[in-house]
């Protein structure tokens, strides 16, 4: 869920940018550390950013029949780690603004916060929790991907409600309004994205075990022969 360019008041635009900045800085720090440890991964995250951009241009079959596009936040968080997703997400969102006029420069901070910080960290946390609860691999992936999508849209609703509180009901009424309106498109999208992520991870585990081992994902999943 992107927030349109110029849609947020100036104080909110600056506030969300300030809120996202430490996460991006920390992400860059972890990327630098990672490159020092594994120099062969130097190009990996840049190519991963292109992958995320291309992924967001794909049309995904949705359960209700309407088509929507995958966000790839959970997939990225599981494959490349949640902290690396903040700078990657920043690059992707900037490119979407400049190449597709989707999202914007002034709302970059707010969009980074919902899509490149809340989404990936939620996905990684849920994935870890599900694993600790000994849920099957597919279920853990599905929960991580779909719940991360839902949390992303809840964050966007909260950001919009915070900027545009209801004249009578205030923040709560406005938040309920946005959450309800967006639920129509976002809940089917979350389910589709969850299913797609499961299919992707299963295909990867079946056909590309060596690559997953190099990405350090194999410790988190059983590779089927």
């Amino acid at each position: 869920m992107h927030i349109m360019e110029g849609f947020l008041p100036v104080s909110h635009a600056i506030g969300w940018s300030a809120a996202s900045a430490p996460f991006v800085a920390y992400g860059l720090y972890t990327i630098n550390k990672r490159i020092k440890e594994k120099p062969e991964q130097r190009m990996l995250l840049g190519v991963a950013a292109a992958f995320t951009f291309v992924l967001s241009a794909l049309k995904m079959p949705s359960v209700t029949g309407s088509s929507s596009h995958p966000t790839g936040t959970a997939l990225g968080a599981i494959l490349f780690g949640p902290s690396a997703m903040a700078p990657i997400g920043m690059v992707v969102l900037l490119f979407q603004a400049l190449l597709l006029a989707h999202g914007g420069l002034t709302t970059l901070g707010a969009n980074i916060f919902s899509m490149a910080i809340v989404g990936p960290f939620a996905a990684a946390a849920i994935f870890r929790l599900a694993k600790a609860a000994k849920l099957p691999f597919g279920t853990s992936i599905f929960l991580a991907a779909s719940l991360a999508d839902l949390l992303t849209y809840v964050t966007t609703s909260a950001q919009l409600a915070f900027a545009f509180p209801d004249p009578i009901g205030g923040f709560a009424a406005s938040f309920a309004k946005f959450a309800t309106l967006f639920a129509i498109t976002q809940i089917p999208l979350a389910i589709s994205e969850g299913l797609l992520t499961v299919v992707v991870m299963n295909a990867l585990a079946r056909f590309n075990a060596p690559e997953l081992q190099d990405l350090n994902v194999t410790t988190t999943l059983e590779v089927k022969a």
């Binding site: 991964q41 992958f51 992924l55 494959l79 299913l195 299919v199 299963n202 295909a203 190099d214």
Partner: peptide, 25 residues
């Protein structure tokens, strides 16, 4: 079927990400 095809597409893309980044390096 389209969900399965898309899954195959994305997973092969992930492998390409990995291989292309190593080749670039």
């Amino acid at each position: 079927i389209s969900m399965r095809s898309l899954g195959g597409l994305v997973s092969s893309l992930i492998v390409q990400v990995w291989q292309r980044s190593l080749a670039l390096n």
